[in-house]
Write a protein that binds this DNA or RNA. Structure first.
Length: 205
DNA sequence: AAATTGATTCAT
DNA sequence: TGAATCAATTTT
């Protein structure tokens, strides 16, 4: 991973680390970095502080529950790609596809802590008033990073515009990890498949 | 608490 | 062809 302004010690997360059950993979993504770069814009990046697991055909709350459709086909593909969908007709939400090729699974990115490119994030989120409003929700973080439906299916493991990286920061452990039910769903509402970093003020509310 | 907003999906 | 359902955000 190289390029102007790219931190030299950031290494893309390899796909094999994402090939497990989303419930195993999701908490391990806490602390990793999501970065977006393009030919025209400065790098924008944030640290993952809140995630939710969606278990595909084994999870009635997953878009993939009823099998592959044009919308959900990337969730049935190989791990390490991006599943982007439109929410409530106006927001984009981004998921890291995980589990094995052919088995649907995904981790919804619910909140990031802004790291790099914060000026561009303010411009992309004019209604945000405080730093902790910038990416403290799944729709907010897509707007702040400039992720849209055009990024659906993108490879996150190195070559593309959106990358999930490890910058050497250890994930939260023990009492620093919050766990509870997922937000905004109507099925499987009691499954505790949401995780967040208790030390962060950038989680959703 | 309520308005906003449109794609997707499944049932007629 | 129609209606229900939203992995949400913002303002009141």
């Amino acid at each position: 991973m190289t390029g102007p302004g790219w931190p030299g010690d950031w290494v893309p997360v390899v796909a094999t680390a994402l090939e497990g059950d989303p419930v195993e993979v999701a908490p391990r993504l806490l602390g990793r970095v999501v970065a977006r770069r393009s030919a025209t814009d400065a790098i924008r990046a944030g640290r993952i502080v809140e995630v939710e697991a969606y278990r595909g055909t084994r999870d009635p709350a997953s878009h993939a529950f009823r099998g592959p459709t044009p919308r959900t086909e990337v969730m049935f593909g190989p791990a390490g790609h991006l599943y982007v969908y439109r929410s409530y007709g106006m927001h984009w939400c981004a998921n890291v596809v995980c589990d094995r090729d052919g088995t649907a699974g995904a981790v919804l990115l619910r909140a990031l802590e802004p790291m790099i490119g914060i000026e561009a994030m303010w411009e992309a989120r004019p209604k945000a008033r405080r730093l902790r409003d910038l990416m403290s929700g799944p729709g907010k973080l897509c707007a702040a990073l400039g992720v849209t439906g055009d990024d659906n299916g993108a490879d996150l493991t190195g070559a593309g515009q959106v990358v999930v990286c490890d910058d050497g920061t250890p994930p939260p452990t023990g009492g620093d990890v919050g766990r509870g039910p997922r937000v905004g769903i109507s099925k499987a509402v009691d499954e505790p498949w949401r995780w967040w970093d208790r030390r962060s003020i950038h989680v959703s509310r």
